[in-house]
Design a protein around this nucleic acid. Sequence first.
DNA 1: TAATGGGTGCACT
DNA 2: AAGTGCACCCATT
Lengths: 423, 423
Amino acid sequence: MDTRKQSNPNDDDNEKTLINPQNISIALNDKQNKLIHLDPVPDFSDKTEIKPWLQKIFYPQGIEIVIERSDNFKVIFKCKATKRGKKHGNVAPPLPEPTTEEEVNTGSTTTVKKKKRSISRFNRCPFRIRATFSIKRKKWQVVVMNSMHSHELVFNPDSDDYKKFKMVLKENNDVDAIKKFDELEYRRRNNLPIPQAIMPCDCGLTSEIRSFNVVLPNINPRKGSNNYSRSNGNKIKKPIKKNSDKPFALQFDSSSTASSTPTNNNISHHNDHNQNQTHNHNNNNNTNINNGMGFLDDPFASTEFSSLNNATTAPAIDLNEIDFTDIFSKSFSNVTATDIYAPSPLLSYNHTDDTNTNDGDILSNTYHVDISSLLSIPNVDADNTTPEFDKILYTKSVTPDNNVNEQDINKDDLHWIINFDNE
Amino acid sequence: MDTRKQSNPNDDDNEKTLINPQNISIALNDKQNKLIHLDPVPDFSDKTEIKPWLQKIFYPQGIEIVIERSDNFKVIFKCKATKRGKKHGNVAPPLPEPTTEEEVNTGSTTTVKKKKRSISRFNRCPFRIRATFSIKRKKWQVVVMNSMHSHELVFNPDSDDYKKFKMVLKENNDVDAIKKFDELEYRRRNNLPIPQAIMPCDCGLTSEIRSFNVVLPNINPRKGSNNYSRSNGNKIKKPIKKNSDKPFALQFDSSSTASSTPTNNNISHHNDHNQNQTHNHNNNNNTNINNGMGFLDDPFASTEFSSLNNATTAPAIDLNEIDFTDIFSKSFSNVTATDIYAPSPLLSYNHTDDTNTNDGDILSNTYHVDISSLLSIPNVDADNTTPEFDKILYTKSVTPDNNVNEQDINKDDLHWIINFDNE
DNA sequence: TAATGGGTGCACT
DNA sequence: AAGTGCACCCATT
Ligand SMILES: [Zn+2]
Ligand SMILES: [Zn+2]
């Protein structure tokens, strides 16, 4: 039974309030809320399990995450920065940089000098995922804090981080995830469209989380005893030494990690999908954001999986191990894969998992959010035309100087604007 | 026998050329050279030995160093940043920040917002020490890259880093260093003047390096075999994995670290001191850079050590173990301790150590540099009056807009100017 | 261990 | 003055 208070998504003051995913599409379309709570979240027994779980979700989105900051009670993720001098090989090239030169007036002479220490565009992406351990709930909460990106989103199966991620999947014998990512790699390398179904869930998070073998461990947390102590006297005490103070790891009688052990939790997903899809942007399915790489060139729109059958020549991938039909037999027809110029709709579903055998306090009546919304650039001004992608990338277009209606800027927006201007 | 070529310090193109410390004062006064090569340097058997060695040198200068960046062939040190919200307790307060507010014009309204992500002044200090392992010389080279600071220099015996440093000294039974730092702490806590003699050497580096028990290990480096491989093809190859690729650690048959083992190297120091002191600035010995802390308030100028005898009441320090006379019997009378508003002179000495029993290629004919120069703010324009400290701190005064003669800017200067303007 | 925000040392890449 | 991934910090509320 979920007793959390749900706030009115039309309330202007609810940016940091827990929002029922049922209403999150409304909240997002209200242009004010950028906090997207992902729910449910596995009961990680260690914070190191969070990143692989998120990678399974966001790699298919073309988002490579890294840890920006972490301690034992918090992990902040962001998009991985590009490598500056990277040759454009099999790696998707970043969009062209803005002018890398700048004029330096040294008095009587003006010198044009290459900007050596320019921070790559990629590193300015405001996208964040915040995982915090809630002592009261005794579980981790995952919140997407800024769903827009300052760069294109391209899945790169050749990145080192992805290779490591894939290797861990193999070490853990995570056959379902391996199969899906093999499929994802195959489609990427052959410039095939990436359907949302390759995402953890074509409509959200929860379902495919199970099939990805990212589990909700059916372990009973200790009740009645709170071994946590974040305060030192009356002040906050943070872990003092390395590899110490891992209270939440002691919370479960887990003999294995959440990411390596499947549960018996049979979530009946892909049922009762109440697709409250809401579009308030141009449904331009032909907009192309990938410069010549072809990854997201073909809007998936109404493409059914049967179209994949055209691809029969697989490279080094063991296609014999890939069962495509199982993946694409699910409903995703109304979800556009690449509609990232304008805010994607949030599809919210209400999962009532009667088969859930886990602790009802944590797992029952959970909801999930279609993370296709994470692909979107926020609708900074719904009344205007969709802002140009290049402008957002290069001209600080989120500032009020760039067609952003100031009334539509909340405090979080302002914070970013200020930071951009300061950098 | 040192066969290194020495360059003409008056040459405009020698910024990155090895400079004989004999000529470094001339080179520095030429306003072009900011690279101060420290020589000799112990043959560190591990890069972790470098920081303690430098701490022994720079703590007495009021400089607390941290590692900015490191790999197995390079360690870059800089000044430790201040703690942001630190209350001004027994810690020397940083100079007041510039305005921490900024106006944000959001169109029709102007919002004044606290700058949240401001970098503390302390972290902008350009002072750097670069230690690089030279494969050709098979030894570490230490270069001070920017001898000015953006902040006051105050030795803080209460800092955590210093306590750790001191603890390591005790673990290593480094009695000489312990004695000297006890003395330094005592003088600091009692607002007594800090003579240059408490520095590793009152006139330079080499001599006190021995008495500080930082040693030049009398170990014969392997000759003829070069186990190093920095190049991958013809490009620089960086270490690939953690805790691997420590080629220089294999270079010596060392059974102990350089910082813990004294050598038999009897450098006859404090002889033949040819004090080529050069002043081209106002010798204002009364300039006070310490806001009320009193540490460096009293210019030491012509103060002899006998003046310390006035202090007889030592707090918790075991003064019975401190032999002051041995320290201050050395000549340092012409060195001002706190003349940091203007460039300090560089005193260069020529040490000819006939008693050196170590490898002549490395240790004979070595020189050392008076690191009192490291206290100075560079003479950005010798023809002008001394630039105001506040201006240097807060108004990017190293830019040509701030009284820097553009002819006096070399390429490295320009690089920095650009970076400052970008921040 | 309340929750949440940010700074920064420093080795990896 | 490699940039940045990450963790050890500290801040305010
Ligand atoms: Zn991003
Ligand atoms: Zn400094």
